[in-house]
Nucleic acid binder design. Structure first.
Length: 506
RNA sequence: GGGUGUGUAGCUCAAUGGCAGAGCAGUGGCCUUUUAAGCCAUUGGUUGAGAGUUCGAGCCUCUCCACACUCACCA
C-alpha cells in the first residue's frame, strides 16, 4: 500500500469496510443507459409531449457534489456530457441506504444511479434516485474541492491551477477542469478537420517509419536508440519528408501523414521534444499552389472547430480568411531590419553589415543562417496576421528547388500567424544530381565513419533517380495550430502529457 | 546553460525575524427541495530539501530540487 494521507486513509478504510459487508467497491459491471445530457433531453421531450409515464434512466459518473440535508440528499454527478443533479429521499431509499450513502460515498467516487427524471422546485432537471450503487471508489480526493454551477457555467471556487500539478497529473486536471477536457476534444476535431480537408482533395493518409536508420528532412538533433538483435543504431524521426517523397516517386501523387516527430533540442513555450506534425506532398504542384491550399485548409479547420475564421491570440484579433498576405522574405527583412539581403550575396558581406549595425550574430555562420536570424529577430515578431514569407536562402533549404535565375534562392515559404512559425513548404527538389550536391554541401558523406558527418541517404537519392514528378510539399506543427485555434500561449496546454523533468517522487 | 520569480494543510491562499492561520474539503452532530446549501463542534503542518546567521527563521544568507516566465541554443 502506498503512503496515504489522512484523507486517503479514511477512504481506503471504506473500501475494507465495504468488502466486509460483501459489497465490492470496484465491481466488474456497470451500466449507463443515458448520458446526463441525453437524460435531460429525453425528459424535456417527454415533458413537451405531455407524456405522463416517467422517463426511466440509469446514469453513471463521478460524484462531484453532495448536499445531505437529513432525510433528503442532493448530489451532482459528472459524466462526459456534463453534470446532472441526483435527488435521494429516505421515503424511496430507506434510512439504511441513506446512511450508507452518507457514510461510504465520497466526492470523486464513480456511482451508478437509476430512477426517473423530474424537475425540482427550482426547475432543475434531476434524477429521482431509486437505486444507487458504488461502481469505483476514489481514494485520493480530487484537487478542486468545490464548484458552483451558475447559469450552466461551472465556476470553480477552489480550482486546480498549479501548472506543475496540472501537467504532471493531467488525469486530475482533466477530471476537475471541464475546459481542459473540451480543449482536447477540440484538438482532436482539428486533426479530423485537417484529414477531412485533405481526403476531399484525394490525398491518402499514410504511415511511415518512426525508427529510421538515417534521419533527415529537417535541421534538428535526433534521439538515438538501438536495435539489439540487428546491432544497429536507429534514430527517432525528425521529420517524415524523405519517406513521403519516396511515395511520390512510387506514384501515389498525393500523400499526407499526421504523426509524431522527435527533436532532441530545447524546450520552450512553442517547443516540445516530441510534437505532432502534418506533412503533405502533392505531385504537379509548386509552392504557390501549396500557399493556396494552406490558407484554405487552415481557414476550413478554423471554421469547422471554431465556427469562424477570426481568432484571438495574445490580445490580437487575427483574421485567417484567405487570401493571406504574401511577402517576399527579402522585402520583409528590408522593411524590418533595414538590410537588403540581395545586396549581400556572401556570408562575409552580410555579417559585416550586421556588425556595423550592432546586430548580434554568431561569427562564421552561413549566409542562410544569418538571414534566418534576421528573420527571427526582426521580422517574425511583426507577423501577427497570417503571412506567407517566400523565397528563402538556398543554403538552409537543402531539399527545396532552386528559383529559376537566382542561384542563392529556393522556392520555399513559411507561414506565420500570431508571430509564430506555423508551417514550412516548398517546391520539392526532384533533380537527383542537384540533391546529391546539396547533401554533400551540408556535410553528408558516403564515408559515414566520421561522427561529425551524417551519412549520405543513398536510398533517397536512388528513389529520385527513378524520377520524381514536380511536387509541392508542406509541413505544419499541429500543436501550434491548436494553440492558435484555442488561444493557448503554451504548447504544454495543448499536449495531453507535455514533457517535464523527472521529479523526485517518480 | 543564464536571468527573474514561485514553492506554507487535500485545494485556493494569509502570516513586521517573535504562539503557523483562514475558506473550502475531511471528521462528529442537526436538518425532507438544495445547488459554494445552512448551523454547531472539530481533526489536519518535516512551511520543497539541506546547511548557516540569530536568543529566536515560513520570513535573512548559501547550496540543491521542481515549476513558471524569459534569454540563449535550435540548417
Amino acid at each position: 500500500m502506498p503512503e496515504y494521507t489522512d484523507l486517503e486513509r479514511n477512504r481506503y478504510e471504506k473500501i475494507l469496510r465495504l468488502r466486509t459487508q460483501g459489497i465490492e467497491p470496484f465491481p466488474a459491471k456497470a451500466k449507463q443507459s443515458h448520458t446526463s445530457a441525453e437524460a435531460a433531453a429525453a425528459f424535456e421531450q417527454a415533458e413537451a409531449a405531455g407524456q405522463t409515464e416517467p422517463v426511466q434512466v440509469t446514469l453513471a459518473g463521478r460524484l462531484r457534489a453532495a448536499r445531505p440535508m437529513g432525510k433528503i440528499i442532493f448530489a451532482h454527478i459528472e459524466d462526459r456530457a456534463g453534470r446532472i443533479q441526483l435527488f435521494m429521499r429516505v421515503n424511496d431509499l430507506g434510512a439504511e441506504m441513506m446512511d450508507f450513502f452518507n457514510r461510504e460515498f465520497d466526492l470523486g467516487d464513480f456511482v451508478q444511479a437509476s430512477g426517473h427524471m423530474f424537475r425540482t422546485r427550482t426547475g432543475e432537471i434531476t434524477l429521482h434516485v431509486t437505486e444507487i450503487k458504488m461502481i469505483a471508489k476514489a481514494i485520493t480526493p480530487l484537487p478542486a474541492a468545490k464548484d458552483e454551477v451558475v447559469d450552466g457555467q461551472v465556476v470553480r471556487h477552489a480550482s486546480l491551477d498549479d501548472a506543475e500539478t496540472r501537467y504532471r497529473q493531467r488525469y486530475a486536471d482533466l477530471a476537475v477542469n471541464p475546459d481542459v477536457r473540451q480543449l482536447f476534444r477540440t484538438r482532436t476535431a482539428i486533426v479530423r478537420a485537417l484529414q477531412a480537408y485533405l481526403d476531399n482533395l484525394d490525398f491518402i493518409e499514410v504511415e511511415t517509419p518512426i525508427l529510421q536508420p538515417i534521419y533527415g528532412g529537417a535541421a534538428a538533433k535526433p534521439f538515438v536508440t538501438h536495435h539489439n538483435q540487428l546491432k544497429q543504431d536507429l534514430y527517432l524521426r525528425i521529420s517524415f519528408e524523405l519517406y513521403l517523397k519516396r511515395l511520390i516517386v512510387g506514384g501515389l501523387e498525393r500523400v499526407y501523414e499526421i504523426g509524431r516527430d522527435f527533436r532532441n533540442e530545447g524546450v520552450s513555450y512553442k517547443h516540445n521534444p516530441e510534437f505532432t506534425q502534418l506533412e503533405f506532398y502533392m505531385a504537379y504542384a509548386d509552392y504557390h499552389d501549396i500557399m493556396k491550399i494552406t490558407e484554405e485548409m487552415v481557414a476550413f479547420v478554423a471554421q469547422k472547430v471554431h465556427g469562424s475564421t477570426t481568432i484571438t491570440f495574445h490580445d490580437h484579433q487575427i483574421d485567417l480568411t484567405p487570401p493571406w498576405r504574401r511577402l517576399e522574405l527579402r522585402q520583409g527583412i528590408l522593411e524590418t531590419a533595414g538590410i537588403d539581403i540581395a545586396e549581400h550575396p556572401t556570408a562575409e558581406s552580410l555579417s559585416a553589415t550586421m556588425t556595423a549595425r550592432q546586430i548580434k550574430h554568431k561569427p562564421g555562420s552561413t549566409r542562410g543562417k544569418l538571414i534566418d536570424s534576421l528573420l527571427g529577430d526582426f521580422l517574425e515578431p511583426t507577423l501577427i496576421q497570417p503571412t506567407f514569407l517566400y523565397d528563402y536562402p538556398r543554403d538552409i533549404s537543402p531539399l527545396a528547388k532552386s528559383k529559376p535565375g537566382d542561384p542563392l534562392t529556393v522556392e520555399r515559404f513559411e507561414g506565420y500567424v500570431g508571430g509564430m512559425e506555423l508551417c514550412n513548404a516548398f517546391s520539392e527538389l526532384n533533380d537527383p544530381l542537384d540533391q546529391e550536391a546539396r547533401f554533400l554541401e551540408m556535410g553528408r558523406d558516403y564515408n559515414a565513419d566520421d561522427e561529425e558527418k551524417h551519412p549520405m541517404d543513398e536510398d533517397y537519392l536512388r528513389a529520385l533517380n527513378y524520377g520524381m514528378p514536380p511536387t509541392g510539399g508542406f509541413g505544419m506543427g499541429v500543436d501550434r495550430l491548436t494553440m492558435l485555434l484555442t488561444g493557448k500561449h503554451s504548447i504544454r496546454e495543448v499536449l495531453l502529457f507535455p514533457h517535464l523533468r523527472k521529479s523526485d517522487e517518480e
